[in-house]
């Protein structure tokens, strides 16, 4: 028996929005530790790694580890039927072929349930090595989203350069070039508005705009985003999910031919 209840059901809706454009389908792995998902996009250029710890659910029971393969377009249809203020409960039997979603309104006067057929997915799992990154930058997530959107108008890829002074995003295209520099903030009133840079070595790497813009669909999950960069390895873009989870996107760099 698997049962997970999240009072703040809007978090699950936001998680869905954060992955549904990148992935067609994905397996949700459930264990007593919580819910995990790892999936690559079709082109194997980016990977989504989602972790929601069991401690973040107000009810969590998982008697046996199980994997639930879901079509994300179908899942999205179901979660769109939940209001932002609803509590969401997921339920499945051991070795399930369906999963049930129950949405309860705040006053419990409206309860709806939807069941969805699960699918068998033969998904490749990748071992992601522990990496000490040369630069780790934390910045407001809305700012990152705006920069990616603005610079995407001018070219297909964005070069991210990081030094101890700050982080620079650059684009070059047919009509010209664009650069956005963010300095490390000295002191800000709100932690959510800070830009912080932890740098061992300066780094400059280039990434496809298309994927960066997909990642920014996670912006409503967290006011801050963390970018981890090292020379010649994939970028990691991380958004926290409340106090109990995260969504990490890995993106392979573009290199000179």
């Amino acid at each position: 028996m698997f049962e997970a209840r999240l009072t703040q059901g809007s978090l699950l809706k936001k998680v869905m929005e954060a992955i549904r454009e990148l992935l067609n389908e994905a397996s949700f792995d459930c264990s007593e530790n919580g819910i995990q998902l790892q999936a690559m996009d079709n082109s194997h250029v980016s990977l989504v790694s989602l972790n929601m710890g069991s401690e973040g659910f107000d009810k969590f029971r998982c008697d046996r580890n199980l994997t639930m393969g879901m079509n994300l377009a179908s899942l999205s249809k179901i979660l769109k039927c939940a209001s932002n203020s609803d509590a969401i409960t997921l339920k499945a039997q051991d070795d399930p072929d369906t999963v049930t979603f129950t949405f309860e309104s705040e006053n419990n006067e409206r309860v709806s349930d939807y069941s969805m057929k699960l699918i068998n997915l033969d998904q490749e799992h990748l071992g992601i090595p522990d990496t000490e990154y040369s630069c780790v930058v934390k910045m407001p997530s809305a700012d990152f989203a705006r920069i990616c959107k603005d610079l995407s108008q001018f070219g297909d890829c964005i070069t991210i350069s990081c030094t101890k002074e700050g982080i620079k995003f650059s684009v070059a295209g047919d009509i010209g070039t664009g650069n956005v520099k963010l300095a490390q903030t000295a002191n800000v009133d709100k932690e959510s508005e800070a830009v912080t840079v932890e740098m061992q070595e300066p780094v400059s790497l280039t990434f496809a705009c298309r994927y960066l813009n997909h990642f920014t669909k996670a912006t409503p999950l967290s006011e801050q985003v963390q970018l981890s960069l090292s020379a010649d390895v994939p970028l990691v873009v991380e958004y926290k999910i409340g106090e109990f989870g995260h969504i990490r996107y890995y993106l392979a760099p573009k290199i000179d031919e």
Partner: peptide, 14 residues
């Protein structure tokens, strides 16, 4: 022109 790498160049299959 730049070449897009894939993740298989970095991560091992489990």
């Amino acid at each position: 022109p730049k070449k897009q790498l894939t993740l298989s160049a970095f991560f091992d299959q489990r």
